[in-house]
């Protein structure tokens, strides 16, 4: 990797200030994406601002109808949280499917969504549940947060502080992992809540997306059969050595069906 300066942030606000002061600086959370990028010399930040010492970015709070997770909370913490498992089992299940134990012990929800890898799992949950992302500047609805491939609504000097998930009536996540990386080739998150049904698809396209046809069908009838014949178009879906766009489109239907079948 290239040389860089290293500082520890005292608070999210201080980190945001530091980003503002130096446009080549970057925050580091779990480092599971950033450190490999540095090792491969694909990024050359001037300074790494470490969020790991900022305790109030870590933790899970469950109030009646909302689960709030601090940006620096690791995937492992979410996966093992009894409170999350009780309120939104699909969310704990999803966190437990990310990477491997080492990755889950370092990787954070804030890092994952800020990075917005098209094959990441969390974007599915955020959009599927209609979550709200809180930052050092504002609150952003999940639907508006994920913009495009590796692109979010975050400004250069804006830091994610927490994510709030409304508790649904039922939800589930089905992941079809890439056999090599185990990221999502297709991940479908379905949720049924008071204000409607959401179907969010990650992995298949350049960015997480919703499937309105499936949402409508499931609103009329919450059953696997309701989505069994709904195909998403393969136009614009990802294609690589593991899965063509066509195969991904097919998997969206299969995973959606299975997610509905598994919903709790």
């Amino acid at each position: 990797m290239y040389n860089f300066e290293y500082t520890k942030a005292s608070s999210a606000g201080a980190a945001a200030e530091a980003l503002k002061a130096d446009e080549d600086a970057k925050v580091v959370a779990g480092g599971m994406t950033l450190i490999p990028t540095l090792k491969q010399r694909l990024a050359q930040p001037s300074t790494l601002i470490d969020l790991n010492g900022v305790d109030d970015l870590r933790g899970i709070t469950v109030t009646g109808d909302t689960v709030t997770i601090g940006a620096m909370t690791t995937h492992d913490t979410v996966a093992r949280s009894a409170e999350v498992a009780k309120a939104i089992p699909a969310l704990a299940h999803l966190a437990g499917l990310i990477g491997d134990p080492a990755v889950r012990n370092r990787g954070t929800i804030g890092g994952s969504i800020s990075n917005n890898d098209p094959a990441a799992d969390y974007p599915g949950a955020l959009v599927g549940l209609g979550a709200t992302v809180k930052t050092t500047k504002r609150e952003i609805a999940a639907d508006d947060f994920f913009v495009d491939l590796f692109e979010t609504a975050l400004e250069e000097d804006e830091i994610v502080t927490e994510v709030s998930f409304p508790v649904p009536e039922a939800a589930w996540y089905m992941k079809f992992p890439n056999p090599a990386s185990r990221y999502a080739i297709v991940g479908v998150f379905v949720a049924k809540a008071k204000d409607g049904v959401r179907v969010a698809v990650t992995g298949a396209g350049p960015c997480v997306f919703r499937v309105p046809e499936m949402e409508q069908a499931l609103s009329s009838s919450w059953s696997p059969d309701a989505v069994a014949d709904i195909k998403v178009s393969d136009d614009g879906l990802n294609s690589d050595i593991h899965a063509s766009a066509e195969y991904r489109a097919h998997l969206v239907t299969v995973m959606a069906k299975r997610a509905v079948a598994g919903a709790k």
Binding site: A180, S181, I241, H242
Partner: peptide, 20 residues
């Protein structure tokens, strides 16, 4: 599977992200 791009000859399965 060791897979090359047939045009450029780049190794597409050149890391554990793609070589299973």
């Amino acid at each position: 599977n060791g897979v090359y791009d047939q045009g450029s000859g780049q190794l597409l399965s050149g890391s554990y992200m793609d070589y299973t």
